[in-house]
Each structure stands twice: as structure tokens, then as C-alpha cells.
Amino acid sequence: MHLHRKHKEWLVAYLFIAPTVFGLYLFFLYPMVSSVFISFTKWNHLTAPEFIGLVNYSRLFHDPTIWLEFKNTMFFVLVSVPLTVAISLFLANALNKKKLLGKGTFRTIFFLPYVILPVITAQIFMIIFNSRYGLVNGFLKILGLGQSAWFSSSLLTRIIIVIVTLWACIGYYTIILLAGLQNISPQYYEACDIDGGSWWVKFIHVTFPLVTPQLFFCLVLAVINSFKMFDYIFVFGKSNVIVRENIRTMAFGIYERGFTYLEMGYASAEAIIFSIIVLGVTILQNVGQKRWVHYS
């Protein structure tokens, strides 16, 4: 009787996890394995895949556009991620102050941009930075300063994309870090006050070490999201083809080759290399976190 009830519990448990497992195999593992196979073929969606071996991978390493996409992707990772994490930590520390009025309102304001779709966010900033009637150029005109055609330069467009990324994501990371800060016992700060420690000493020796688990989580997410930079490239680049070709990322290149030029084999090969790069960076982060992340 006991064994029968145990089997029944197992059956119920399997029924509950079945949708998740089925979805994992159907929408993750199967496409991943298929991409590996397709990367060794020449396929245009219309005809049967033709096996060509390592031709796509050889072509990747000799394609200057791929190297440009890689450099642009690393630019967004190396610039956006440190700024995002640093500003989020600063805001979280400010919102954690007990005497701050309207903390709930500020938290909501900072978090709202995160729930807006990236395409809508990009459209908003295209209007703000419009060279003819944009808010930024209007403000510069009032100050008597020079105005710019923001989206006519690849460098300026990259800077705008970094600004948009910060505006859209900082609220989410701030809330995560704020949750970590609120779990720090006040006794640590009281002990630091007794020893005459300044605010900087408190931050370096109390706040930062105890919030490193949340910092590490935010760092991993920020790196992955920066690697996946696509929406802003697509929206900002559509108004100027020359600029788009100079700011293109690996995620954008995979999409364009696969669904615009119908080179699915080549796109899959780039996707595999891209996945290996992201996986490698994530592994390095997990190995490195043992040196600076402190779990209490």
C-alpha cells in the first residue's frame, strides 16, 4: 500500500515537471542540436540542406564583417556592463538610506523603463536625439551650443546605445542590489561607527563584500544581455545603412544572415561560435567569483 502511494506521488510529480522538460527539449535542446548540424551545411530555407563540412567556419574567420561584429559586441560588453553595475550599486545604496523620502516612488520610477519593450525604448530615444526636432538638440540650441546629427555617426550612435542600455536596465539591477543591501545587518555598520570608520571604509569593508553575491548575479546578467545586443542596433541602424554596418553586433549579424540573406548554414556557424564565446565568458566569471564573492 505504501509502495503504491509512493508510485502515485512519483507519477504526480512527473506530470507537474513534464511541461517544463518537454518545453526544454522542444524549444532549447532540439534547436541547439539542429543549429550544430545546420552549421555544417549550405541551406537557404527553400531547398534541402547540403553538407559542406567546415566551409562555413573557415569563411567565418576570414570575413572582416564578422570581426567588426565581434569588436562592436565587445565594445558594448566592456563599456555598458561596468557602467550598469556601478551606477546600479550607487543608486541602490542611495535608495537604502533610511531618511530618504519617497523611496517607494523612486524605486518605481527607476524600475519602469525595464518593463518597456526595447523597440519602444529605441523609438523614444530616436525622437529625443532627432537632429531636427529632438529634445537634446533643442536643449543645446537654448544653451547656444552646437547641435549634432546624432545618428549620422557610428561613434555617436554607439554612445547613444550605451545611454539607452543604462536607462533601460539600471532599474532592474538596482532593485536586485537593493534587496541585497537590505539583508545586511545594521550591527556591522554600528561596529564600524564605534571604530570611527568613514562612509568609504563602511562601503569597502562592509557594504561591498556583503553585497557581492547580488553583484555577481547582476554582472552575469548584464554581460549576457550586452552580448545579445540586437534591438537597438536594428532600430537605430534602419535610418542609416552606413551607420548600421559600422555598429552591427554578432546577434544582429546572425539574424541578418539567417533571415535576410537566407544563409542559414553560415548564420548557424556564427551562432555556434557566438554561443561558445558567451559560454566561455560565463565559465570565467563563475571561476573568478570564488576570489571576490563572499557568501555569508
Rank of each mutant, 00 (worst) to 15 (best):
H205Q: 08
H205D: 09
H205P: 02
V206F: 01
V206S: 01
V206L: 07
V206A: 08
T207G: 09
T207W: 07
T207D: 03
F208A: 12
F208H: 09
F208W: 15
P209A: 04
P209S: 06
P209W: 12
L210M: 15
L210D: 00
L210P: 07
L210C: 06
V211K: 06
V211Q: 03
T212Y: 12
T212Q: 12
T212M: 08
T212V: 09
P213V: 11
Q214K: 07
Q214Y: 14
Q214I: 00
Q214V: 02
Q214L: 02
L215Y: 03
F216Y: 15
F216V: 05
F216A: 04
F217H: 10
C218Q: 09
C218F: 01
C218N: 11
C218G: 11
L219R: 06
L219G: 09
L219Y: 04
L219M: 14
V220K: 10
V220E: 02
V220T: 14
V220F: 06
L221V: 10
L221T: 11
L221P: 01
L221Y: 06
L221C: 05
A222Q: 04
A222W: 03
V223G: 08
V223L: 14
V223M: 09
I224V: 15
I224K: 09
I224R: 07
I224H: 07
I224Y: 02
N225P: 00
N225E: 10
N225R: 09
N225K: 13
S226G: 12
S226M: 13
S226Q: 11
F227Y: 10
F227T: 04
F227I: 06
F227D: 08
K228I: 01
K228C: 09
K228G: 02
K228T: 01
K228W: 04
K228L: 13
F230M: 04
F230Q: 07
D231E: 15
D231H: 14
D231C: 14
Y232C: 01
Y232W: 14
Y232P: 02
Y232T: 09
Y232Q: 13
I233L: 11
I233R: 08
I233N: 08
F234V: 01
V235I: 15
V235S: 03
G237Q: 04
G237W: 00
G237M: 06
G237T: 02
K238G: 01
S239R: 13
S239C: 01
N240F: 10
N240D: 15
N240H: 12
V241P: 09
I242A: 14
I242T: 15
I242L: 15
V243N: 04
V243S: 01
R244V: 00
R244L: 03
R244T: 05
R244Y: 08
R244C: 00
R244S: 05
E245I: 03
E245L: 04
E245G: 15
N246L: 14
N246P: 04
N246H: 14
I247D: 03
I247E: 00
I247T: 05
I247A: 05
I247V: 15
I247Q: 01
I247S: 02
R248H: 06
R248Q: 13
R248V: 11
R248S: 13
R248W: 01
